[in-house]
Design a protein around this nucleic acid. Structure first.
Lengths: 346, 346
DNA sequence: CTGAAAGCGCTTACAG
DNA sequence: CTGAAAGCGCTTACAG
């Protein structure tokens, strides 16, 4: 049916050499082994014939697939597309490709997906789903599969990660509302099994301390998931517990949007009655109503760095495990405002 | 370094049979060739050893890679994640995986990417970047590579597509604003090289005719790209030409968001001064300010159907090319309102 | 019903 | 510097 592509043997015949010579001539690492003149001849023939090496055949022989697995909760969550873009861009520039799986939140399924990835003989894995203790991570470590976690950190030692400086990010958020006069500040936290949820909650506590504000545990509520519905439910809980809150620092934009929903239901207005700050600065956050004040993280760069880190590992270039920690940036928009005088006095 | 996975030979030895028998026993299509008892024995051994067939080795032998290429403009555009999700879900359920490329808008680059896909020996291609006349499509046809276009249609005959009924969708949008009393309605159109931009403009003309409104060509403006900045520029042009417009039907949500930007710049308010309707109902369109009235298309289903269509073709199950046409749905939110009395009279 | 052989398209020790 | 051979892990005519 389909016109087959030229093989290395055809190139060899056309150039009057053996296939192994073609292989050497076309591989930058072995090119020096063959005489310049022959290299030139082979290159010309290869071009004429439109020869493209068959990556999978090469992979079979070399025992590397040139594939890396990317496991994420759900590509439909707007945080991930730019991350994925960064990954794909840097991977494809060096001949690797990625196989992405939408794994959801169920740890059982994560393992099943890891199995599929292993069956495909991926050369490495980028994990955006890691929990603080994670079975997938354990298996990868046992199998000695190169691994980097993204936006997540893991308790097991020896795992590379690219993350944000969440302590700093949350501190910027808290300091921002404190400067606006807020003192009764709540935290709409993320799932505590996730390093981000955990770390941001820690950051919140530390930031309050830094601002000289007493920590009221009932002002911290944790959502089950980083989703808008989970954010709504948790925000409702928070408002129920602490009606006098004047500001909410959310662990994530989606949670902040859920808080918007909750406020609307309660007949409250943001920022008039309550200031809200998000985390991530996903696409379109400048266009929601009100435009969300949030902490911007560098999604694209995260993806690029994760791919770099993984490539280093796969090529044995990384003697010791290390993390890349990215710096966040506060983006002030219209969801935060100076605290109302009566609220401040109350 | 890495513990290698079990091979078919190891399974064969452990089961006391030849590798070819293992191969037959484990493949549903050839299983009947081997005695039930042997099948059972082999299956047990395979399970014990954690045997997973090496897909690429099998692919090499069978001359199919089990990979399909997906070329899209940019995964970062919120329309694509759900589409991609639909594709991946249905592909992975039958053992295929996808290689996605962010190709941007440059047709030159599209061809380069096609080359990479061919070098990887993809078994088929899903194209979300197709123009009405498209060089990539032509090459695929010439190479007899199975192909389906998504959300795009192509002039060349014999190409499967999954698209929306854009005529109907735009008609619903126009009828909606007409019912609200609008008569001076503009079209913020998409690029005319794209079938969607072209078809939606056609739909707009037809819908006006259907509503008995004269077509004023200066009320139609076409953006260079489906992007928010391009939408802003085109909307500014439209407002400049026709200051008395009371409604804008955009060819796409991103263009509608660009129109929001333009209105803000001109000191106009939506929907008070001007109603706006979008197209696509991307994620978060219920949260922008004002919540966007738009035409919902079934992104996830589009992806699923595209994958189905492609699988049919790759398995030679599709005698004649056919299109899948999805039905859109109008979602009324707050960006459209009854026309102001003085505007209607003017 | 099962086995032995050949081969998919490469790469890489091993000779020379 | 180049060639001949073996082999990566499979599948599939070909025998029996």
């Amino acid at each position: 049916m389909r016109r087959p592509r030229a093989t290395i043997r055809q190139v060899a015949e056309a150039a009057g050499v053996h296939a192994s010579t073609v292989s050497r001539a076309l591989n930058p690492e072995t090119r020096t082994m063959v005489s310049e003149e022959v290299v030139r001849r082979i290159e010309r023939v290869a071009l004429d014939l439109g020869y493209q090496p068959h990556g999978m055949a090469a992979g079979l022989r070399r025992q590397r697939s040139m594939a890396v697995g990317v496991i994420l909760p759900d590509i439909t969550n707007p945080v991930f597309p730019p991350i994925l873009r960064g990954i794909e861009d840097t991977l494809s520039s060096v001949g690797f490709f990625s196989i992405v799986a939408n794994a959801g939140d169920d740890p059982e399924r994560h393992l099943a997906i890891l199995d599929q990835m292993l069956a495909r003989r991926v050369d490495g894995l980028i994990l955006a789903t890691a929990r603080r203790r994670d079975a997938v991570v354990e298996r990868c470590l046992a199998e000695e599969l190169p691994l980097v976690t993204i936006n997540r950190t893991v308790e097991q030692p020896g795992v590379c990660a690219v993350v944000n400086d969440d302590q700093r990010g949350i501190r910027m958020a808290v300091e921002h509302v404190v400067e606006l006069g807020h003192r009764r500040i709540g935290h709409l936290g993320g799932p505590q099994e996730l390093s981000t949820g955990f770390g941001r909650a820690e950051g919140f506590r530390a930031a309050l301390r830094g601002a000289g504000i007493d920590l009221e545990p009932r002002r911290m509520v944790f959502a089950d998931a980083y989703s808008r519905p989970a954010g709504r439910i948790a925000a409702l809980e928070l408002l129920g517990r602490e009606p006098k809150l004047t500001a909410i620092v959310a662990a994530n934009d989606l949670l902040a949007l859920g808080a918007y929903d909750a406020l609307r239901e309660r007949g409250l207005r943001c920022p008039d009655n309550l200031s809200v700050v998000g985390y991530n600065d996903m696409p379109l956050m400048d266009l929601v109503d009100p435009p969300l004040t949030t902490v911007r993280i560098q999604h694209l760069v995260m993806g690029q760095q994760a791919a770099r880190l993984l490539l280093d590992q796969m090529q044995g270039r990384s003697p010791a495990a290390y993390d890349v920690v990215l710096k966040p940036e506060l983006v002030v928009r219209a969801s935060t405002a100076r605290v109302a005088r009566e609220a401040a006095a109350a």
